[in-house]
Design a protein around this nucleic acid. Structure first.
Length: 825
RNA sequence: GCCCGGAUGGUGGAAUUGGUAGACACACGGGACUUAAAAUCCCGAGGACCCGGAAGGGUCCGUGCCGGUUCGAGUCCGGCUCCGGGCACCA
């Protein structure tokens, strides 16, 4: 054993051992409980840095901890290898995306190995390999069969910089989630996954995902945005052939409908515009509204613009004629694209009615002192014909009932969630396995012809559409139906499709008979603990849930949900910003490893705060973690000979008092660390407890005249520290374990157990309060009666001083903790 | 605007069910070692005030603000302020 802590050499040594013995390889083993822990796999964008390391360190603590606890742990790693940055690198630097991606993977794999993350590297996957995406293509075909994948022309989000379509989830505040360019609209043909068919199930299961953070669940619920209401028809005056269908969540307010509004792009508008000269005016209004970007149209505080039509409709409940408007505040994409307006009970309608001088009818009795504008609260119905006197909830039911009875409408549930647009007009992605035949139209590729391999020999310019379109060998293929000439689809799939099922592939990554080998899938799924950033709350995490349900319905998996529990780790922040290459505030893992070692880097990130919170990078904090490991090393080095000479098993009650206390602390620490890691993921307090035990050990070793049994307790303490530290700093722990003459590696050692007996205190420190303020502390034997403790408490000099001349009213006694004497006078 | 978090020393954070607020660490100050520095080791420390020659001892205040419940509140309840995040003309 070297006197100095040589982190680099030690880490190299143990990484080689793990690599050569394939220490973390697992197979299905029904004799053990399984534990599948997974960190969101990375996009191989270049290099990882200390901002990325955090999530892997967290996952590794759990993986190593659970192995020691006797679980059969699946902890795999792979690469989300398709994506735009690879293509951009190709455009900018002339490197093929495949080459660029594979080089990055090679480098990043090496970095993860150097951090000592305990992956089963035999299960490594890259989603850009045909062996991977062929199964995705197969699922696509099956989804197509069931109508879960479909093609349509629609208005979609378009990123002008990425030159591709984006799904709704990938637009954040009107900007592209990846490059932050402002997103525009385009009418384009594209492929969609019918996620809306699962809206209800996705929503219902939210409440069963008890292992997920509340905020992620809330974000998903809001994103799905279920609302219950009614849909019904408004007759158009003098036009019996026309009906305007409207959607409302407040069918109870129909008697307050004083006008109705259509979205400017509503398809009925053309037929409603009949008055002379009206068409030109309406066209002008439409053009004015539609030329604005989505951003401008929804900007805050802007007045609602509208245009009155000559046509009028009828409120079917009252028979009263009402005016019709086009207005920018009604959106074609939600509901029916038309609304009944109730300015009394809807603020938007209220604003519009005020600017256009329209009638306002209140249909809910206002609370006393109400001086607001539109009232959206609960109350008793007024001015509402047959609904008068009812509550809002009851009136809703009655109004819907009335609509059904008269054949005008029905109850209707709407969602904010829209189908997932998966077409990408880019090269570096999984080909969509369909063809277009002049004779047969769109034809799916035959399953036996899969995979449709993405060709490598393409010219990537970034201009003029997908390079696949100008690749003759790819694009022209025989029609799977008639054998005639057909053209392949050149759109590729959104890379979020690959990440929607990769966790399944890890169960049997080399299986050639399907996406997952059924036994392996049944054994490992679902993921027990998933770990990743909050930024995927409505992206990847929603898609993966949807895809899992589809796979279940297609018979590929048995689970309803992919991830049992989710840990959303916070960002690593430096100088007030998320650590990232573009911000220029990255701390290189190479530099940290070179200066301190991987263990120090890991320990710092785990110690600086709980995993769900953001973590402020601190160079001094890293120093502190390093100092602790160095002290531990030196301690072991200095006392090694003495410790190796004794056995570490001791009889607690034969020890001198201070060593009995140390022995008790060892067991308390085991309990604390176990509970912190297992139940709460509070690795920071777990590490703090280990440090405390070490501080106590350092103090105890000063006692030169200790008996041999005392040395044995110190040895037991040190071994406990090493074992408890292993999940956090595995290299130094493994090395120190070996230094203490252990012949077998720490990798196979069980997590220590505490004994309840050892935890029992002999003495209790009781806080004595007078009227809730601490006035003294007494130490009493653990078996002292409550009565006696109270007598002792009253006798405590400072306590009696405070009680002098006062009348004791009662004594509150919390056993083992405190005595509070309530006195007056 | 709506929804969800959060606010504790100079700093990161701890206090798990209402029971000693500030664990553990960083930074800082003092000391030891050293020609010196680094490293290391030891000691100190929430704030204000008081007693004492000193070592020491004491009182009050203190977890964003105001109020409440309780023997007792960082923790529970009501009302605010500020910060962060999500959604946002979704009818």
């Amino acid at each position: 054993m070297e006197e100095r802590y040589q982190a680099k050499a030690i880490e190299r040594k143990w990484q080689r051992v793990w690599e050569e013995t394939k220490a973390f390889r697992v197979t299905e083993d029904v004799s053990k409980p399984k534990y599948y822990v997974l960190e969101m796999f990375p996009y191989p964008s270049g290099r990882i840095h200390m901002g990325h390391v955090r999530v892997y360190a967290i996952g590794d603590v759990l993986a190593r901890f659970k192995r020691m606890r006797g679980y059969n742990v699946l902890h795999p790693m792979g690469w989300d290898a398709f994506g735009l940055p690879a293509e951009n690198a190709a455009i900018e630097r002339g490197i093929h995306p495949a080459k660029w991606t594979m080089e990055n993977i090679g480098y990043m794999r090496d970095q993860l190995k150097k951090m000592g993350i305990s992956y089963d590297w035999d299960r490594e996957i890259a989603t850009s390999e045909p062996e991977y995406y062929r199964w995705e293509q197969l699922i696509f075909l099956r989804m197509l069969e069931r109508g879960l994948a479909y093609r349509k022309r629609s208005t979609v989000n378009w990123c002008p910089s990425c030159q591709t379509v984006l799904a709704n989830e990938q637009v954040e505040g009107g900007r592209c989630w990846r490059c932050e360019s402002e997103v525009t609209k385009r009418d384009i043909d594209g492929w969609f996954f019918k996620i809306t068919a699962y809206a209800d199930e996705l929503l219902d299961w939210c409440d069963r995902l008890t292992g997920w953070p509340e905020r992620v669940i809330t974000m998903q619920k809001n994103w799905i945005g279920r609302s219950e209401g009614a849909e019904f028809d408004l007759p158009v005056v003098g036009r019996p052939e026309l009906k305007i269908r409207v959607y409302t969540t407040r069918p109870d307010t129909v008697f307050g409908m004083t006008y109705a509004v259509l979205a400017p792009e509503h398809p009925l508008v053309d037929q409603l515009v009949t008055a002379p000269g009206e068409r030109t005016e309406v066209e002008r209004f439409r053009a004015e509204v539609l030329k604005e970007s989505e951003q401008e149209r929804v900007a805050e505080d802007r007045p609602k613009r509208g245009r009155r039509l000559s046509a009028r409709a009828v409120n079917p409940f009252t028979g009263v004629e009402i005016p019709l408007f086009l207005a920018d505040y009604v959106l074609m994409i939600y509901g029916t694209g038309a609304i009944m307006a109730v300015p009394g009970e809807d603020q938007r309608d209220w604003d519009f009615a005020k600017t256009h001088g329209l009638d306002i009818i209140e249909t809910v009795k206002r609370p006393p002192n109400w001086n607001g504008e539109a009232y959206t609260g609960d109350g008793i119905k007024i001015n509402s014909g047959f609904l008068d006197g009812l509550t809002v909830a009851e009136a809703r039911r009655r109004a819907i009932h009335w609509l059904v009875e008269h054949g005008l409408g029905e109850a209707k549930v709407n969602y904010r969630l829209r189908d997932w647009g998966i077409s990408r007009q880019r090269y570096w992605g999984a080909p969509i396995p369909v063809l277009y035949c002049d004779a047969c139209g769109m034809v799916p590729e035959k399953e036996e012809n899969l995979p449709v391999v993405l060709p490598r020999d393409v010219q990537i310019s970034g201009k003029g559409g997908s390079p696949l379109a100008s690749h003759p060998a790819f694009i022209s293929a025989p029609c799977p139906r008639c054998g005639g000439k057909a053209r392949r689809e050149t759109d590729t799939m959104d890379t979020f499709v690959e990440s929607s099922w990769y966790f399944l592939r890890y169960c049997s990554p080399h299986f050639t008979g399907g996406m997952v080998e059924p036994t392996a899938g049944a054994y490992w799924m679902p993921v027990d603990q998933y770990i990743g950033g909050i930024e995927h709350a409505v992206l990847h995490l929603l898609y993966a849930r949807f895809y899992t349900k589809v796979l279940r319905d297609l018979g590929f998996v048995k689970v309803d949900e992919p991830f049992n529990a989710l840990l959303s780790q916070g960002m690593v922040v430096k100088d007030g910003a998320k650590m990232s290459k573009s911000k220029g505030n990255v701390v290189s893992d190479d530099v940290i490893r070179d200066k301190y070692g991987a263990d120090t880097g890991r320990l710092f990130e785990l110690f600086a705060g709980p995993p769900e919170k953001d973590l402020e990078w601190s160079d001094q904090g890293v120093e502190g973690a390093y100092r602790f490991l160095t002290r531990l090393w030196r301690f072991t080095f200095q006392h090694r000979e003495a410790l190796v000479a004794v056995r570490s098993d001791v009889a607690q009650n034969e020890l001198p008092a201070d060593f009995r206390n140390l022995y008790r602390l060892i067991h308390k620490t085991i309990k604390k660390v176990t509970e912190d890691v297992e139940g709460r993921f509070h690795f920071n307090t777990a590490i703090a407890a280990i440090m405390e035990l070490f501080n106590a050990l350092s103090a105890s070793v000063q006692n030169e005249s200790r008996p041999e049994s005392g040395t044995a307790v110190i040895k037991a303490g040190l071994e406990t520290i090493i074992t408890l530290l292993y999940p956090f700093a595995p290299h130094i722990a493994s090395e120190l374990w070996e230094c203490l003459d252990h012949k077998t590696s720490l990798d196979g050692v069980s997590w220590p157990k505490y004994s309840a007996e050892a935890l029992e205190e002999e003495q209790l420190l009781i806080v004595v309060q007078v009227n809730g303020k601490v006035r003294g502390k007494i130490t009493v034997p653990a078996d002292m009666s409550q009565k006696q403790i109270e007598t002792e408490a009253l006798a405590e000099p400072r306590v009696s001083l405070f009680l002098d001349g006062k009348k004791i009213e009662k004594i509150v006694h919390v056993p083992g903790r405190l005595v509070n004497i309530v006195a007056e006078g």
